[in-house]
């Protein structure tokens, strides 16, 4: 039996909003550690990895590991039926062919119950090496979202370069070009507004903005986003997931293969 209860159901709604347009079908791996998911987009250009730790849930029971394969747009449609303040409980019996979602409104006697069909998916898991990166940047997630949205008006790709204590996002296209330069902030009264840059070596790398704009759909999950870059390897865009108390619940990590000059 698998059962996971989340008082702040809105977190699960936000997670689905952040992945459903990138990945159509995926499997949740549920173990005593928590729920996790790894999937590539259909073009195999990007990869998304989600982790929700067991102790972040308000109740979590997983007698034996289960894989819950599902259509994410179906799950997202069902989660839209939950209110933002609802408690969400996921339930799956061992060897069942569906998952049950129970939504409970706060201070009300209303509960609703939905079922989503499970699918057997041939999931291909990629091993992601845990290596240090040349550049790590932490910045406000809304700023990253804004930069990616603005630069997509100019071109299809952004060139990210980092030198000393600044990071530069540049795009060019038929209409002209655009550049956004961000410098490290000195000290922050509000940590969520700060930009911090740690650089081992300068870097310049290009990425498709279409995917970065998909990743930015995770913005409501976290006030800060972390970008990690090294020469000729995928970019990592990470949003940590915290609950209202600020406790660490897990993360969404997106990996994006670079564009390489011919």
């Amino acid at each position: 039996m698998f059962e996971a209860k989340l008082i702040q159901g809105a977190i699960l709604k936000k997670i689905l909003d952040a992945i459903k347009d990138l990945v159509n079908e995926a499997s949740w791996d549920c173990s005593s550690q928590g729920m996790s998911l790894q999937a590539m987009d259909t073009s195999h250009v990007s990869l998304v990895a989600v982790q929700m730790k067991a102790d972040g849930f308000d109740k979590y029971r997983c007698d034996r590991s289960v894989t819950l394969g599902m259509n994410l747009s179906s799950l997202s449609k069902i989660l839209k039926c939950a209110g933002n303040d609802d408690t969400i409980t996921l339930k799956a019996p061992d060897d069942g062919d569906k998952i049950t979602l129970v939504f409970e409104a706060k201070n009300e006697s209303e509960t609703s119950e939905y079922e989503v069909k499970l699918m057997n998916l041939d999931s291909e898991y990629l091993g992601i090496p845990d290596t240090p990166y040349s550049v790590n940047v932490k910045m406000p997630s809304h700023k990253f979202q804004r930069i990616c949205r603005d630069l997509q008006q100019i071109g299809d790709a952004v060139t990210i370069s980092c030198a000393k204590d600044s990071i530069r996002f540049a795009a060019k296209g038929d209409l002209g070009s655009g550049t956004v330069n961000l410098c490290q902030t000195a000290s922050a009264d509000k940590p969520e507004d700060s930009v911090s840059i740690s650089m081992q070596e300068p870097i310049i790398q290009s990425f498709a903005l279409k995917y970065l704009n998909h990743f930015a759909k995770a913005t409501p999950l976290s006030p800060q986003v972390s970008l990690s870059l090294s020469p000729d390897v995928p970019l990592v865009v990470e949003y940590s997931i915290t609950d209202d108390d600020g406790s660490d619940f897990g993360y969404i990590r997106y990996y994006l293969a670079p564009k390489i000059d011919e």
């Binding site: 590539m40 073009s43 990629l126 995928p234 990996y255 564009k259 000059d261 011919e262």
Partner: peptide, 14 residues
């Protein structure tokens, strides 16, 4: 002109 690479050329299947 730049080429889009694929993510599965960087990370091997487990």
């Amino acid at each position: 002109k730049s080429n889009q690479t694929r993510i599965d050329t960087f990370f091997a299947a487990k």
